[in-house]
Nucleic acid binder design. Structure first.
Length: 579
RNA sequence: CGGGGCAUGGCGCAGUCCGGUAGCGCGCCUGCUUUGGGAGCAGGAUGUCGGGGGUUCAAAUCCCUCUGCCCCGACCA
């Protein structure tokens, strides 16, 4: 490719509304242009990069026996109604009607379509296992698209689905995917981490996310140097040591006029927040339920959902609380509460002499001991906080933001049961197919690579996913010697399978150097005045070093520099995510 | 959906408070010069000032309304 024929409109200034680095740089470098909220056009540079990512994914999926499909993005409503997700997907699903008034939607994911194929075609355990995948567009009507390509309404996804006769088979398919994903992200040059993820209330026994640490991400990851890592919805921490005072006095009411929040009551009584019991009221399947946490802890609704086994819950309104307790929120507590279910976080187990609301406005109880002054079911309900001790090693946990680039999920029989996808097993009994589902966001690989690898001059992409591997900067296109050497190197690199671009534009050298660095091409060969000594310069984008080599050695030098290029990223500052 | 902000040429912005018919930088076009780090000089083109309505002799500017985009929050299989 010659830059004079390449449409890569670079900008000196980024659009004012681009905040995160990957958004700003991908626009500036001429990779993408915005069409609407969460909608981006991919110009040739982005397309080239995404095609390389796609090809890496394809090769690794094929390697584990995956078979590539291509399904309609436009789906009829019936299969979604069968799985129950026509309703549960809610506003996140784009819906439309055809000319006959029939309901259709744009696919957000393809469990339904693949399961529909499976139930029609897979009859026997002999047909299993199957790993089916596609690389295709997905549509999700996000409440708030943001951060350039990181959260959009239309995006490319590799989604795959495994079909096995039993859990042993699922374990194997799941493990194959985990291995393929590690190879994919490694080949894409990403420093990533596999973390335990919450499987939600939708059944399923195990789920892992593959994340890239970045402040531009929205996924909070709890991790520890010992290797423990989980997303925040799933993460657990050790119980912080409690040093409650000795003695077992009876609960005693104290007047706490106008003090409602834990913060206010704790200052008023001059007792630290961890000596307080935070009492929340939720309506669970239309029944009030009391939730107790340590004063300085936060409820994790994801964990609550897992404990309750339902998503049908919400915080109670002030009126509902008044009706159930005869007191306003701010003075609630579990002592004397009989008719309600009470769930307490594990951090309250074994505690004593705490403070809670008295179920009487402006009064709190002191000397309250869980287990003797009230009875509750204990469960893990709290959100892990940075600095909590690690459950495995006791060291303080870290909490950092990350981009989720992939997710693997043991689905079990959730879709095969609801949609009737069964096979006959070895004993001749009809059993639902055991499924797994696995996804990778292609644009997120590109965007998180840019987040991870950029500098003040622009993008520094890994070689494996860069739109070009090498750019030959022809300093003086009107110089016959320079021109012929550039052409000769170009031809030779192409013959060696190097994806090469010649910057033959009639621009000043500074423009060409700046553009080459902005768009993030790994190596630049400068063919310029040093040709007088039969030498060219090779500039290393990541190291920002350049070296001069004789023209005759340029091609072998470039090839060997390209080989080690991505390793420099993986070996970089943060130790490799994959262990 | 709640809160905040923005909308003026391709990009970045000024002008809006205080109404008088639109300007700057970059980019673009032509010519000459220049050519190893976003060139110089000269000349030139490009605007329904997001849409609609209103007030006024006169609206980018004031009022009403709609739309779009960004940020924070809520939400997120």
């Amino acid at each position: 490719m010659r830059w004079s024929n390449l449409f890569a409109p670079t900008l000196r200034e980024a659009p004012a509304d681009a905040e995160v680095a990957s958004h700003r740089l991908l626009v500036r470098a001429g990779y993408i242009r915005q069409l609407g909220a969460g909608l981006y056009s991919y110009l040739p540079m982005a397309r080239r990069s995404l095609l390389k990512i796609e090809q890496i994914i394809r090769e690794e999926m094929n390697r584990i026996g995956g078979q590539e499909f291509y399904l309609p993005a436009l789906n009829p409503d019936d299969i979604w109604r069968e799985s129950g997700r026509w309703e549960t997907m809610g506003d996140n699903m784009f819906r439309l009607k055809d000319r006959f008034g029939r309901d259709l939607c744009l696919g957000m994911t393809h469990e339904e379509v693949f399961t529909a194929i499976a139930r029609n075609e897979l009859r026997s355990y002999r047909d299993l296992p199957q790993i089916w995948y596609q690389i295709q567009v997905k549509f999700r009507d996000e409440p708030r698209p943001k951060s350039g390509l990181l959260r959009v309404r239309q995006f490319l996804m590799k989604d795959s689905y495994s079909f096995d006769v039993d859990d042993v088979g699922l374990d194997r398919s799941y493990r194959l995917h985990a291995e393929a994903y590690r190879r994919i992200f490694t080949r894409c040059g990403l420093r990533f981490l596999a973390v335990e993820a919450s499987s939600g209330a939708m059944g399923g026994s195990r789920s892992e996310e593959f994340v890239v640490f970045s402040d531009a991400g929205e996924d909070w990851i709890v991790h520890c140097e010992c290797g423990y890592a989980a997303n925040r919805e799933r993460a657990v921490s050790a119980l912080p040591p409690a040093e409650d005072p000795p003695g077992d006095e009876e609960p005693r009411p104290v007047h706490t006029p106008g003090k409602k929040t834990i913060d206010e009551v704790s200052s008023f009584l001059e007792l630290p927040q961890w000596r307080h019991i935070k009492s929340l009221v939720y309506i669970v399947e239309s029944q009030p339920c009391m939730l107790l946490l340590r004063g300085d802890h936060q409820l994790s609704e994801a964990k609550l959902g897992a404990v309750l086994g339902t998503e049908q819950f919400r915080p109670a309104t002030a009126e509902e609380i008044r009706e159930a307790f005869g007191a306003d929120p701010g003075s609630l507590g579990p002592v004397g509460v009989r008719s309600l279910r009470i769930l307490a976080d594990e951090a309250l187990r074994g505690r004593r002499d705490m403070v809670c609301g008295a179920n009487r406005d402006d009064y709190h109880l002191v000397h309250v001991t869980p287990g003797s002054d009230f009875i509750a079911e204990f469960a893990d309900l709290r959100e892990v906080q940075a600095g909590d001790p690690c459950l495995r090693c006791g060291k303080p946990l870290r909490l950092d933001k990350a981009v989720e680039v992939g997710h693997i999920f043991k689905l079990g029989v959730r879709y095969s049961s609801s949609m009737g996808a069964t096979v006959l097993n070895r004993e001749g009994r009809e059993v639902p197919i055991v499924m797994g589902s696995y996804g990778i966001g292609l644009e997120r690989i590109l965007a998180s690579a840019v987040e991870l690898y950029h500098d003040d001059r622009g993008i520094v992409l890994p070689r494996s996913i860069a739109p070009f591997e090498v750019v030959i900067t022809l300093v003086r296109p009107d110089d016959a010697d320079q021109q012929s050497v550039a052409e000769q190197l170009y031809g030779e690199l192409l013959r060696n399978g190097v994806d090469c671009l010649v910057d033959d534009r009639n621009e000043r050298p500074g423009v060409k150097f700046n553009d080459a660095e902005l768009v993030g091409i790994p190596l630049r060969i400068t063919v310029g005045k040093k040709l007088a000594d039969r030498r060219v310069e090779i500039f290393h984008r990541r190291l920002r070093h350049s070296r001069e080599v004789p023209v005759a050695e340029a091609v072998p030098s470039v090839i060997s520099m390209l080989e080690g290029y991505d390793q420099l990223a993986v070996d970089g500052e943060r130790s490799g995510g994959d262990r």
